[in-house]
Design a protein around this nucleic acid. Structure first.
Lengths: 205, 205
DNA sequence: TAAGAATACCCCCAAAAAGGGGTTTTTCAA
DNA sequence: TTGAAAAACCCCTTTTTGGGGGTATTCTTA
């Protein structure tokens, strides 16, 4: 059986060195390429046709989420494992929605990283322990805002008054008022301060 | 001349592997120890008495800032280079105030990391390029709040009304009103939403 | 096709915040 | 010791928000 061809995409040079070392003596995985940016990643894919990509979602030139989507649409057979420092629900959810087979935080155990690559290659999905826990916790009380509500929330966070928002959204001030009150109830926020805080902390905008 | 004795403290195993590799063939630096937590760090210091510590400021068990302070008070001769993913002014400033000789982001070039350790050992300070730029930018318009203003801002972010804040701070509501208006002017914020946003984004609280 | 969201609108009113003016006392450093 | 900054207080007014009720469309999906 052939070894799994792995492409590592991350601008953290030291981390990449660590990853290379991790797979150095692996019987199942072979690191066939390294890329430090989205651009390098694209050309590496064409050159090497990897089976799995370990993809940092914070690259200097492109959003990891967009890149993930792009890769999956062009090469659906390539499996992607997202690699990131963030353990935030919104980010994980978005990257999984965009075709990633796994998500591993950078301080995960080496075994978890190895595992994630092998699982991905076998068409299975994998989340490191920390993220798995996070997803379970959040799936209990998912905060789901309608597109319109998100739009409004963003404008509130940007500091516009109801009057200004009404103009921007081509709606009546009363409508904005209703929406706003609804948002407070929906998020259990007592006032604008809490609303803004939640929006920023939970990355709702 | 003796080699610089370096202790690496970071819970990101892969990154640590990369760092070890980085110094493997170094003529000037020798990695004498590895620690994956604050606890391990403390015992490693006693055992090995390193010259320089590469210290991740996001350890699982302790705040890197507190740990840095603690180490410097017990072993003033040990130089500390902070290692982090964050490029935020408030964090960098705080860690430098607490005795760090340098600050390097994790996606810095390997040369920068080597440099930072050597500079630290020679009693010089070092900031990686990205952080150096950040510090220059922010030193132009430092946002300085008085202790009382910070206290107030925190309560605003926590969603309390002027009335509630007045009770908590044992002050009159009018006083809170004045302070609050002053905060808006000082930070150039137009309303509470912007105030909360700035407080969170600039880590003023 | 009927229920349920989501969207958009309306009124009243009270509470809170924001904008404008001030004063006094304390604290701390030049 | 004398200023300047910080801390605390006060009044008036308008704007913005929040709390409580509603109603009427569309659009989707079971």
């Amino acid at each position: 059986m052939e070894k799994i061809k792995l492409l590592i995409v991350d601008d953290h040079r030291i981390l990449v060195a660590g990853l290379k070392k991790l797979f150095e003596n692996s019987a199942t995985v072979q690191v066939t390429g390294i890329a430090f940016s989205g651009k390098e990643c694209r050309s590496a894919i064409i050159k090497e046709l990897p089976d799995v990509i370990l993809l940092d979602i914070n690259l200097p030139d492109v959003s990891g989420i967009d890149l993930c989507k792009e890769i999956k649409s062009r090469h659906p057979q390539i499996k992607i494992v997202a690699l990131s420092s963030f353990n935030e629900y919104a980010i994980v959810r978005r990257i999984l929605e965009n075709g990633a087979s796994g998500y591993v935080v950078k301080n995960a155990m080496p075994e978890e990283i190895k595992m994630s690559v092998e699982m991905a290659a076998n068409n299975a999905s994998f989340l490191c322990e920390e993220i798995d826990l996070l997803m379970r916790k959040h799936s209990k009380n998912p905060i789901w805002l309608t597109p319109r509500e998100k739009e409004l929330l963003k404008l509130i966070v940007d500091g516009f008054t109801n009057h200004e928002i009404a103009e921007k959204m081509f709606l009546g001030v009363e409508t904005i008022n209703s929406y706003r009150k609804n948002l407070l109830i929906k998020l259990g926020a007592k006032n604008t301060a809490i609303l803004v805080r939640m929006a920023l902390e939970e990355k709702l905008v």
